[in-house]
């Protein structure tokens, strides 16, 4: 088996995650889909690391994880405070950015 199939898998997972972001209204699920996209990228980086025979790709994946953790913390805090004020976790309800 050619390890390039891992890349196809990563692309597939990324696309599924992106579509989920566009389709779901629940902010928490949207967030999960974003995590899925990040994980797909991480998989691609790890495979690239194997492809080139050095550890730089893994380092990038590592940093991605750290950033993802920070993003999740802030994002979930935003969702919680949004829910407190609007009693809803739907991204469509926060639609004040229009005229």
């Amino acid at each position: 088996m050619n390890p390039v199939y891992y890349l196809y898998l990563a692309a597939l997972l990324f696309t599924i995650g992106a579509t989920g972001v566009l389709i779901r209204r629940n902010a928490i699920v949207v967030f999960m889909c974003i995590e899925l996209m990040l994980n797909a990228c991480n998989l691609a980086f790890v495979v690239f690391s194997r492809m080139h025979g050095n550890l730089d790709g893994q380092i990038i994946a590592f940093f991605t994880m750290v950033v993802a953790a920070a993003e999740v913390v802030v994002g979930l805090a935003i969702i919680v405070s949004l829910f407190r004020t609007r009693h809803s976790a739907s991204v469509d309800d926060a639609s004040l950015m229009k005229l």
Binding site: Y6, L43, F62
Partner: peptide, 11 residues
Amino acid sequence: VFYLANGAYFL
């Protein structure tokens, strides 16, 4: 598991 399989044990 895939990470492990690709040699990224720590990750």
